[in-house]
C-alpha cells in the first residue's frame, strides 16, 4: 500500500510477467530436471514414461502441447487427442487392456495431484463428504457426533481400499436420497416409481455395470430404495443421536401494510359510480398506465372523511405535537444556516 512498497511490487509483477511469458524456458527447465535425476529412469521406464501416451504411444517429446487426461472411473491416463478420437461419438470402453469401464468424454480432466492414488482418494473423500455433511449441532451429544465421524471415515476407507464397494455405494446413495427427500418432501421422485421393476438384481447387475455411469447409478439407487425389511437399510445408514430435521415454517404471504388495514367509519366504497364529471373512467388509455377509477373513488372518499372526527380544538390544546419550534430560529430572526461542509 505504501509508497515504499510500490516499486518492489511493480518489479515483482514484471518478474512474474517475464517468467509467464516464455514457455520455452519453463519446458527447458523441466527437461533439465529430468536429466539431473539419474536414479529415477528405472521407475520412469516401469511406468513406461509419463511422457508417452499409453494408447497411441505418441510422446510429448514430439508434441510439446500434449496434455494428459484421466477419467475418475478408472484413472487411466491418456492424451487429449486419444480422448477426442475415442470418446467423441459417445461413451466407449476404456482402451487400456484389461479395463472394461465405460467412459464418457465429459468426465475427463487434468489430474490435480501427481500421484493418482491421492487423486482418487481426494475424489472419494469429496464425494463422501458431500453426502455425509452432518455437523455437531445435528446430534444429541458429542459422543454421537464422534461415532458418526468414525462411521464416515470407515465408509471412506472402505471405498478407498475397495472393500464392500457395491454395498457401501448402495447405502451411500440410499442415504443421499433419504436426505434429499427429507429436505424437500414435495420433490418428484422418479426413482421411486422405477423401483420395483429392478428389484431382482441377481444376474442383471452385471449387464447394468457395463452401461454408462449415470444409468448405472440410477439403477443402483433405485435398488437401494426398494422396500427393505429394515428401515435402516432403506435410509442407507442410521446414526444414533441424529436429530430429526425440523421443517421450517412456511413463509407467510407478504403484507405491504404490515398488518394494518383501513376500516372506514363513515363510508363504504363502491366499485362503480354513476356520474358524468369523471368521464375518463372507462378509457383504455387510462387503464393502460395502471390508473383505476376505484382507486380514485376510495381516495376521494378517504379525503372526504379523513379527520371528520378529529377535533383540533381539543386535541391540539393539550398536545405538545406542534411545539416543534425548538431548534429553528424562527420569527424573522436569522435563519438556520446551511450546513457548511468545508
Amino acid at each position: 500500500m505504501s509508497r515504499v512498497a510500490r516499486p518492489s511490487g511493480a518489479s515483482n509483477r514484471k518478474a512474474v510477467e517475464d517468467s509467464g511469458a516464455s514457455n520455452l524456458s519453463h519446458s527447458l527447465h523441466s527437461m533439465s530436471l529430468q536429466h539431473q535425476s539419474p536414479s529415477k529412469p528405472a521407475r520412469a521406464a516401469a511406468d513406461s514414461s509419463p511422457e508417452v501416451c499409453q494408447v497411441c504411444k505418441s510422446s510429448r517429446y514430439l508434441n510439446q502441447h500434449m496434455r494428459f487426461l484421466v477419467n475418475p472411473e478408472c484413472y487411466h491416463k491418456m492424451c487429449e487427442s486419444c480422448v477426442d478420437r475415442i470418446f467423441s461419438h459417445g461413451p466407449a470402453p476404456c482402451p487400456i487392456a484389461g479395463c472394461k469401464k465405460t467412459l464418457r468424454k465429459a468426465r475427463f480432466r487434468m489430474q490435480t495431484f501427481e500421484d493418482l492414488k491421492v487423486e482418487r482418494e481426494v475424489d472419494i473423500r469429496r464425494r463422501v463428504a458431500k453426502v455425509m455433511n452432518k455437523q455437531e449441532v445435528d446430534f444429541e451429544s458429542l459422543r454421537d457426533y464422534n461415532d458418526y465421524l468414525e462411521t464416515v471415515e470407515e465408509i471412506t476407507w472402505n471405498l478407498i481400499l475397495k472393500i464392500d464397494v457395491e454395498q457401501t455405494e448402495r447405502r451411500l446413495r440410499a442415504f443421499e436420497e433419504a436426505q434429499k427427500a427429507e429436505l424437500n418432501p414435495n420433490a418428484p421422485r422418479r426413482v421411486m416409481n422405477a423401483g420395483p421393476d429392478t428389484s431382482t438384481l441377481s444376474d442383471t447387475s452385471h449387464v447394468i455395470l457395463k452401461k454408462g455411469g449415470t444409468q448405472r447409478r440410477t439403477q443402483t439407487a433405485s435398488s437401494g430404495n426398494t422396500p427393505d425389511p429394515s428401515g435402516a437399510e432403506e435410509r442407507g445408514f442410521s446414526f444414533k443421536g441424529l436429530k430429526k430435521r425440523k421443517v421450517p415454517e412456511p413463509e407467510k404471504a407478504f403484507d405491504p401494510w404490515g398488518g394494518y388495514s383501513v376500516d372506514a367509519l363513515y363510508y363504504s366504497v363502491k366499485d362503480e359510480y354513476d356520474h358524468k364529471f369523471f368521464a375518463v373512467k372507462h378509457e383504455a388509455k387510462f387503464y393502460a398506465s395502471g390508473y383505476k377509477a376505484p382507486e380514485y373513488y376510495s381516495h376521494a372518499l378517504r379525503d372526504a372523511f379523513g379527520g371528520l372526527g378529529v377535533f383540533l380544538n381539543e386535541e391540539m390544546a393539550d398536545l405538545k405535537l406542534n411545539a416543534i419550534d425548538v431548534p429553528l430560529a424562527v420569527g424573522g430572526g436569522r435563519d438556520v444556516e446551511m450546513n457548511d461542509v468545508f
Binding site: 359510480y273 354513476d274 376521494a300 372518499l301 372526504a304 372523511f305
Partner: peptide, 13 residues
C-alpha cells in the same frame, strides 16, 4: 377539493 368530489359522488348516488 378531492374530498368534495367524493361527497359529490355519494350525493349523486
Amino acid at each position: 377539493f378531492r374530498g368534495l368530489k367524493g361527497v359529490h359522488l355519494e350525493l349523486e348516488d
